[in-house]
Simulated scan of single mutants.
Amino acid sequence: MGGEIVRKDDISPKSKYLIKKEFELKNGKYGYQKYLIEDIKLQNILATDTQLVFMGGWAEQFLAKFTGAGGGNVAWCESSPDVLVRIENLISKTLLP
């Protein structure tokens, strides 16, 4: 269109499902990261995968100020820290027959 940016509203997505990510940190010490699979048309949550994290005590948080490291994979309270594997498992176990 001649190099113009055109905005169109009210366009229905072609995908049937939506994957969303939520992250929340509570009290600066505990948090979670959650992936959700939602049916767009029905607006139902079909599955979730939640990872809990402990950001460390006072010593870890003090040292992290100097290194910028933070909790890392050690802090995640689950067995498979690779988030791509977790998302792949969530999708395949939820959506594939």
Rank of each mutant, 00 (worst) to 15 (best):
D10N: 14
G31Q: 01
L63I: 02
N44F: 09
V6D: 10
M55Y: 13
S80Y: 04
I40H: 13
S15H: 12
D9W: 15
G68P: 00
Q43N: 15
A64N: 10
M55N: 09
V74R: 14
V6C: 13
E60L: 09
N27A: 14
G2A: 06
E78Q: 05
K41R: 07
E88P: 04
Q61S: 06
F62V: 01
I45G: 05
G72E: 12
I87H: 02
Q43G: 10
E4K: 11
Q61R: 15
I40K: 10
I87E: 05
P81K: 01
N73R: 09
K20M: 11
E60H: 07
L25D: 09
F62P: 03
G70M: 04
Q33W: 01
N27T: 06
E78P: 00
E88I: 04
G56K: 01
C77V: 01
G68E: 07
G56D: 10
L42M: 15
M1P: 01
G57Q: 04
D10Q: 11
V6A: 11
A69P: 00
N44L: 05
A64Q: 03
V83E: 13
T67D: 02
Q43Y: 12
V83Q: 05
G72Y: 06
F23K: 14
L90Q: 06
G68Y: 06
I45A: 10
I45L: 15
I45Y: 12
F23D: 13
K14F: 13
L25N: 11
E60M: 10
G31S: 04
F23W: 07
K41C: 00
V6R: 13
Q43K: 15
S79I: 02
M1A: 12
L36V: 00
I40F: 15
D82C: 14
K65N: 13
V53N: 02
K29N: 03
F23I: 07
F62Y: 11
G70W: 03
E60K: 03
S15T: 03
L36S: 09
P97W: 09
G3C: 03
I37C: 03
G71S: 13
Q61M: 11
Q51F: 04
I37T: 00
P13A: 06
V85C: 05
R86E: 07
K20T: 08
A59W: 14
E88K: 12
L25C: 09
L46C: 08
L36R: 00
V53W: 03
Q51A: 04
A69G: 05
M1R: 05
L90G: 08
L95G: 14
R86D: 10
A47K: 12
V83Y: 06
K8D: 09
F23C: 14
A59T: 04
T94S: 15
C77R: 06
K41G: 01
T67E: 02
E24G: 08
M1E: 12
